[in-house]
């Protein structure tokens, strides 16, 4: 067997193993790391097919940016709070299997139709070399034959970006601006909007209102001992004379 075939099978084996790992892993961060390994191996197969540009873009966009953000979120998840992955949720398991099977069929159909018809498109080694290399050939095709699709995709992405900004803004833009003018460094959580704290006189400082007595909470029992929730240290003490 030639060396490149052996290396291809090695890469493919690692790729599929890590893809299985993504689904099987209990710890979400481990699943994310498996996905990173899987994507890196996909980039490696791109390199083996002579598509260096695609490989590098795969690494920069998926591995270097998107998965970093995915891990960013996963790291904040407490593993103890997760639902049981492998026991419940029958609907999701069935749908997942179904979608996987459909995808497998699609890929199989694509490979089969190509083997049967033998059509290989015009992206031969000679044509790519004539265009000045892989990157140039891809760029030409993308910006001439598929220009409309390219622009539509960028428009969709732009809408996505604007949507993300709108979601990240506080509820009222004017509120944010007035906070900026007062010189606080609040990050989308304007003072006085916290339900737990009453608003201050001008909205700038949360003040705990000590004049009107807060409703005394009912004593609760935890583990056999009585817990008393108080808001004022003098509330339940008997020292001194308190009306």
């Amino acid at each position: 067997m030639p060396w490149d075939v052996i290396i291809f099978y090695l890469i493919a084996a690692v790729c599929i193993t890590s893809a299985v790992g993504v689904v099987v892993a209990n710890n979400p961060v481990h699943a994310g790391v498996f996905l990173v390994i899987c994507f890196l191996n996909i980039a490696a197969t791109f390199v083996m097919m002579g598509a260096e540009f695609l490989a590098v873009v795969q690494v920069i966009v998926y591995t270097g940016a998107i998965l970093v953000l995915v891990l960013f979120v996963l790291m904040l998840v407490d593993p103890d709070d997760l639902p049981e992955f492998h026991t419940a949720r029958p609907v999701q398991r069935v749908v997942g299997l179904l979608l996987g099977a459909i995808l497998l069929l699609e890929v199989g159909a694509a490979i089969l139709s190509r083997t049967v018809t033998g059509a290989r498109g015009d992206a031969t080694a000679q044509n790519i070399a004539a265009a000045g290399g892989n990157t140039q050939a891809l760029g030409r095709v993308l910006y001439s034959d598929y220009l409309l699709a390219f622009e539509v995709v960028s428009l969709v992405l732009l809408v996505g970006v604007i949507g993300a900004i709108v979601l990240a803004l506080p509820e009222r833009l004017g509120e944010q601006i007035s906070i900026t003018r007062r010189g606080t460094i609040s990050l989308g959580h304007p003072r006085g909007t916290d339900a737990a704290l009453p608003a201050g006189p001008a909205g700038e400082t949360p003040m705990v209102d000590r004049e009107t007595p807060s409703p005394t909470p009912e004593p609760t029992t935890a583990g056999g001992r009585t817990l008393i929730m108080v808001t004022d240290p003098d509330e339940r003490t008997t020292v001194g004379t308190r009306p």
């Binding site: 961060v29 790391v33 990173v36 890196l40 260096e52 540009f53 490989a55 590098v56 873009v57 690494v59 920069i60 591995t63 270097g64 940016a65 970093v68 891990l71 960013f72 790291m75 290399g133 892989n134 990157t135």
Partner: peptide
């Protein structure tokens, strides 16, 4: 002499951050 050499450096720079975030986690 990779024909995407400049992007190659950027790509490995972007993988490097995994060392930081995974170590931190």
């Amino acid at each position: 002499d990779l024909n995407v050499g400049a992007l190659y450096v950027l790509a490995f720079g972007s993988i490097g951050v995994y060392g930081i975030i995974l170590g931190a986690y």
